[in-house]
Design a protein around this nucleic acid. Structure first.
Length: 877
RNA sequence: GAAGGCAUAGCUCAGUUGGUUAGAGUACCUGCUUGACAUGCAGGGGGUCGGUGGUUCAAGUCCACUUGUCUUCACCA
């Protein structure tokens, strides 16, 4: 006997058990099967510092849906999981933790620090992996990777050396974004701009020959210490003649020149700009053009250097205050204005970024960007939805060289050694023992590490064993789908693209599926500071992982943000329960665990109808999934399961299952199990736990649903005519229910239902369930019936009479019929107008025209029947 | 300043290459111990798809302009 199921689905009882079963069965493990096509996804590696949030939940749900779908379709599927070492984020956390112990990085030293970092990784790195498992993610855990593991390390060194040797990595003194809190350089992509209100200090710098002043405005007076020129526009009539003169820098009393540079906007402010090459990117460029000295006035934590004893040690804002006061004393301050401007901040810690000149490593981007642009233009990689290609192109087309060195310890140490004797650089995959130029042993490795994203950029191939020619790499690379949020296109997608093309000669994936952000119920970004984050684990605990996954997949169209609404998850939970109870119903009506084979000859009309609908569903859901229309697929499944299968087909089967005819009951059983099993398969990628649990309780063949075959459409199930016939019956049932509800007749009060129709065969076969569903005491089918004393409803296929004498109010009946007639005649007019439009008939596709003709025909039939009824009543009155 | 998204029922959202008289969930109203399910069943009210104009036999769906809203990028010291 089949297993009995509880009255309500309890995810807690099921999920961990089923997940373990999958793991034990090694179903997630990719076996490099040469005879199968491959389908590969690499996970966007979550940070080891992170905890699962709704963004991960969405990202991983989408990936799991795709991978489970393809696995069932027979692909050799591989989903590579792993985590990211997240250099800045992790280092910041460890520094923070040490600070609580009263320790600094310097106290424990590089090795001591790294030891702590690895301990951290051991302790927390596994946390997020366990959380991903709770979601049901079918990753190949045997292939789990870490961006700082041995293999990734090897790949990183290989790429660094290759690019260096090609001249695509260089070291240079440039102005970069510096975070004074993290004490490291950061890339352009890591700077976030925010609007802040500040001030405009108008200053005047006197000419050294005593011939007056030049007035200018600045938002950062403290940088005045590092001014090495003042610039005006060469075409500015007001100042043209002053170019070449010198000024005395207030406070510092250094002599600086007036230079002419196109960069200065004549109509902004006074048209005069102070130039601080060490602390402003634009000024740096001006400095280069005019050969100006670069004077750094700030330390790495944004305090004034000891070169200015009066301000030394003050942080930039304190110094600003002090300097403004001194300027005022010196009479150099003209006025202060309110000013709103954009300030760059560190994307990790939010500290205002300090532009700073320093020696860093860079990747030359132009030569790498071009092939990456080409590849997407040639559709070698497609974005879904395609509009995100614009963002991708915009970034790559305007890209500047990528600053890859970080003044951090947690990360891939730069494989470059400096010779103390000859001063040359040795770059090597192996740890260098001596200078490659002069042979000196007196060499030191660069203390810096690489940007986290340098290793993430290699993720699609480093995880498959590259640079070794491994079996995995040969078999699974290039990968297929990359699933990620639009916010990291510039950080990650773009960098994987150019790295993949440069290093392997192939694009790393053929499709980039972009999703949006999960926002809170009010549409706000979920954030720690707002405290509005929703913890997926709590939701799983409350409603189950399947309900959460289903909610995230429903109504989520690619690239669009979505809101997290609790009620939606509740609705998904209810849906899971509906599915569960359908299984209970089927199970309690089966006689054995044997699968009853389908027998075409025994099918009743309703069987043909459901098989035909199911067959269409299989085709549509498959197509939707192949086109990444996951939301659409899930909506169709929902409608089919709840409305078509449960509310109609199951209800209809009840009369056969409870009837005397065992053969008919068996036919119903065979179709119920067949269609329901198909549903479980189609739904499995979305709701893996419950579908697996139910499948194993039902008659089945094979070990597990997750490794069973995806359903295929079958032309033998295309019962078009039967579908239409059955829908005539549905229309009658609905019309009867509707009329009874209008008259407030409770279901317990049964009435005779007489159906006058041209389709006697179809209706005749359905009397048993029409009786049930239309709350009838008995059902009669015929050409016509005595209408006296009957309530009547008319569909386009039948006139239905319900003799309920005591309830019948003839004038009310007449009124209703006239209302129906009016509606039907409006419809008739609508269709006729369309069909009389020559343009429509000539140009619209034949199928569309035919549809309209069909509709018109039905309306005409209906009108005839209504008129007849009206006449009958009038005759009897 | 530039680019892009979104605007559809009270609320949250679907709507696939333009093609039956626009859908779902939820909320609301009415009725139901209907032997799978009240996390349920049946019935109902409620949008003309932000606005204007255009293309087309046909537009929520394409184009232009416009309003509101959000995002990203750039940035003038």
């Amino acid at each position: 006997m089949a297993r009995e199921l509880a009255k309500q689905y309890d995810p807690k009882e099921v999920e961990d058990r089923i997940y373990k079963q999958w793991l034990d069965g090694k179903y997630f493990h990719a076996k490099c099967e040469k005879d199968k096509p491959t389908y590969t996804i690499v996970i966007p590696p979550p940070n080891i510092t992170g905890q699962l949030h709704m963004g991960h939940a969405l990202d991983n749900t989408l990936q799991d849906i795709l991978i489970r779908f393809k696995r069932m379709q027979g692909y050799d599927t591989l989903w590579v999981p792993g985590t990211d070492h997240a250099s800045i984020a992790t280092e910041a956390k460890i520094v923070e933790k040490m600070r609580e112990e009263g320790l600094t990085k310097e106290d424990v030293g590089r090795d001591g620090f790294l030891e702590r970092a690895w301990d951290w990784k051991k302790q927390y790195g596994g946390r997020i992996i366990e959380q991903l498992k709770k979601m049901g993610s079918s990753c190949d855990w045997d292939r789990e990777r870490f961006t700082l593991d041995e293999g990734c390390n090897k790949a990183v060194k290989e790429v660094f050396v290759r690019l260096y040797e090609k001249g695509l990595i260089y070291r240079g003194e440039r102005i970069i974004n510096w975070c004074p809190h993290c004490k490291t350089s950061i890339s352009d992509a890591e700077v976030e701009y925010e609007e802040q209100s500040g001030h405009f200090w108008h200053l005047r710098y006197p000419f050294s020959d005593g011939s007056g002043y030049l007035e200018l405005a600045t938002t950062r007076p403290e940088t005045l210490l590092g001014d090495t020129a003042v610039a005006v526009n060469p075409n500015d009539e007001r100042y043209k003649h002053l170019v070449g003169k010198t000024l005395i820098l207030p406070i510092v009393h250094r002599e600086i020149p007036v230079v002419a540079d196109e960069y200065v906007e004549m109509d902004f402010g006074t048209g005069v700009v102070k130039i601080t090459p060490a602390h402003d990117p634009n000024d740096f460029e001006v400095g280069l053009r005019h050969n100006l000295p670069v004077i750094n006035v700030l330390t790495d934590d944004a305090k004034i250097t000891k070169d200015y004893p009066k301000y030394a040690g003050m942080d930039r804002y304190e110094a600003r205050k002090a300097i403004v006061e001194d300027l005022e004393k010196e009479g150099a301050l003209v006025k202060i204005e309110e000013h709103i401007h954009n300030v760059g901040t560190c994307y990790r810690c939010g500290t205002t970024v300090e532009p700073r000149v320093s020696k860093q490593w860079f990747v030359k981007m132009k030569p790498l960007a071009e092939p990456a642009i080409e590849a997407v233009k040639k559709d070698e990689t497609k974005f879904v939805p395609s509009r995100f290609e614009k963002i991708y192109f915009h970034w790559l087309e305007n890209i500047r060289d990528w600053c890859i060195s970080r003044q951090l310890w947690w990360g891939h140490r730069i494989p470059a050694w400096y010779c103390e004797d000859c001063g040359e650089i040795t770059v090597s995959k192996e740890d260098a023992q001596s200078c490659a130029h002069c042979g000196s042993k007196n060499i030191k490795q660069d203390p810096d590490t690489l940007d986290t994203w340098f290793s993430s950029a290699l993720w699609p191939f480093s995880t498959l064993g590259w640079p070794e020619e491994t079996e995995d790499f040969r078999h699974y690379y290039p990968t297929n789908t990359l699933v990620t949020g639009y916010d990291i296109i510039p950080f990650w997608v773009m960098r994987m693209m150019f790295s993949g093309i440069e290093q392997t000669g192939k694009v790393p994936f053929d499709t980039v599926l972009i999703h949006g952000l999960v926002r809170d119920s009010q549409g706000r970004k979920m954030s720690k500071s707002l405290g509005n984050g929703v913890d997926p684990l709590e939701i799983i605990d409350k409603y189950g992982a399947d309900a959460l996954r289903f909610s995230l997949a429903t109504g989520n169209s690619p690239g669009n943000d979505m809101r997290y609404i609790d009620e939606r998850v509740e609705a998904s939970r209810n849906f899971a329960n509906k599915l569960w109870n359908a299984a209970r119903f089927i199970l309690m009506n089966l006689k054995s665990e044997e699968i009853i084979p389908l027998n075409t000859d025994d099918f009743a009309l309703e069987d043909k109808w459901i098989l035909s609908k199911y067959n269409k569903l299989v085709g549509e859901v498959t197509e939707n999934l192949e086109k990444y229309e996951l939301g659409m697929a899930v909506q169709k499944l929902y409608d089919f399961i709840w409305d078509v299968f449960c509310d109609w087909y199951i209800e209809i089967c009840k009369s056969r299952l409870g009837g005397e005819d065992e053969k008919a009951a068996d036919t119903a059983r065979s179709v119920l199990v067949f269609v329901y099993t198909g549903i479980l398969k189609l739904l499995h990628p979305f709701m893996p736990f419950i579908t697996e649990e139910i499948w194993q309780s039902m008659p089945h063949e094979g070990e597990a649903l997750m490794v069973s075959d995806w359903p295929k459409t079958d032309s033998g199930f295309e019962y078009t005519a039967e579908e239409a016939d059955f829908e005539k019956i549905m229309a009658v049932i609905k019309a009867v229910r509707n009329r009874r509800a209008e008259m407030n007749v409770p279901p317990s009060k049964k009435a005779r239902v007489q159906i006058a129709t041209k389709f006697k065969d179809a209706f005749g076969a359905g009397t048993a369930y029409i009786c049930r569903l239309a709350y009838a005491s008995e059902v009669e089918i015929g050409d016509s019936f005595e209408s006296e004393g009957a309530v009547r409803v008319i569909t386009d296929a039948a006139s239905v009479y319900m003799p309920m004498k005591e309830l019948v109010d003839f004038s009310a009946e007449l009124e209703r019929l006239n209302k129906d007639l009016k509606k039907a005649e409006d419809d008739k007019e609508f269709f006729e107008k369309k069909l009389n439009n020559e343009g429509f008939v000539a140009k619209a596709p034949a199928a569309v025209v035919e549809q309209q003709r069909e509709s018109l025909k039905k309306v005409l039939d209906k009108i005839a029947m209504i008129k007849e009824s009206i006449k009958e009543i009038e005759d009897n009155m």
